[in-house]
Design a protein around this nucleic acid. Structure first.
Length: 286
DNA sequence: AACAGCACCTGTAGGC
DNA sequence: TGCCTACAGGTGCTGT
């Protein structure tokens, strides 16, 4: 028996304001896409070698001189395309951030700096050191194991209709090989919006439920993008403006509080090692 | 095949 | 006041 009170996810949401899921990465990608193309990499300094997947030496020796041509998002990955065909992918995981300017306090968590010929630099900060960068050569297929993008209802519906698994639906939503970009928060939110219990076996979802989930997944993600974080937009001020989407969460981090739809108390269980929040009345197993 | 447990990590906050 | 420790979670790995 633990005598310690558990750290509740509501307080986590409060102080750890932006957990990078698809909407956060999309926001960062859009901001980077507006400023990075055209820049030429001058040097890469690595302060935490484990943040590099693959060869660190290659990372540092092959990138200088390369020009950035585009930035996009795929799942939770940022993809920086280089002239000549190579690509840098960045996964922010839990606490990764990209900033053009950092203050003294932020330097404590500085893991990598990419300097450009124009004098600017992109700083990769990551408190918990889970984030990863990787350099892909032009001839290597990129992120081949990633599933479909979950932003279009018809695409999600098609994926759900083709599922042949006894796994529970929340586990399936978190599986990046099935749908790329859904994290713990939006899995809970999408299941709540669709009125589906997170432990429902995916194969037992009725057509009507698959339809609802196909609409709710893109809906919660788009809503979060609209309210998205501003992780790197403040590269002049270094002030981290908080994202706004956490105020719209219906169940995540709200255990013990009233369901916004029916007033029943939100419950929290553990599923796949993750805190899982749901309304026992709106999301009954049928 | 599915899933539980763990490892990686650190900041936070409650209990004592 | 300050030490101790569980917990948060994306992903990959191992064991059952």
């Amino acid at each position: 028996m633990s005598r310690n009170k558990r750290v509740d996810s509501a307080s986590l949401v409060r102080y750890n304001r932006r957990m990078p899921e698809l909407p956060e990465v999309e926001t960062v990608a859009r901001e980077l896409a507006a400023v990075l193309p055209g820049k030429e990499i001058a040097a890469v300094h690595v302060f935490w070698p484990k943040c590099i997947e693959g060869s660190r030496k290659g990372f540092q020796s092959q990138l200088p001189g390369k020009k950035i041509v585009a930035v996009c998002r795929r799942g939770k990955f940022l993809c920086i395309s280089l002239a000549g065909g190579g690509t840098i992918t960045i996964h922010l995981r839990m606490t990764g951030k990209l900033l053009f300017r950092v203050n003294a306090a932020q330097k404590k968590h500085l893991r990598l700096v990419m300097q450009f010929q124009d004098g600017t630099a992109l700083h990769f900060l990551d408190t918990r050191k889970f984030g990863r960068l990787r350099c892909w050569p032009a001839d290597e297929p990129l992120l081949v194991d990633l599933g479909a993008e979950p932003l279009v209802p018809e695409v999600v519906r098609s994926v759900l209709d083709r599922l042949c698994t006894s796994r529970v639906i929340k586990t399936v939503l978190l599986d990046q090989k099935v749908l790329a970009g859904i994290g713990n928060i939006y899995a809970d939110e999408a299941l709540f919006a669709a009125g589906i219990h997170p432990r429902t076996p995916a194969s037992q979802l009725r057509p009507r439920q698959r339809g609802k989930l196909s609409r709710s997944v893109p809906q919660v993600l788009h809503a979060a993008i609209v309210n998205g974080g501003t992780t790197i937009s403040d590269y002049r001020t270094t002030t981290n403006a908080p994202g706004r989407h956490q105020r719209q969460l219906q169940v995540y981090g709200r255990e013990g509080q009233s369901c916004p739809k029916c007033g029943a108390l939100i419950e929290k269980i553990r599923l796949q090692g993750r805190g899982t929040h749901f309304c026992p009345r709106c999301q009954m197993m049928k």
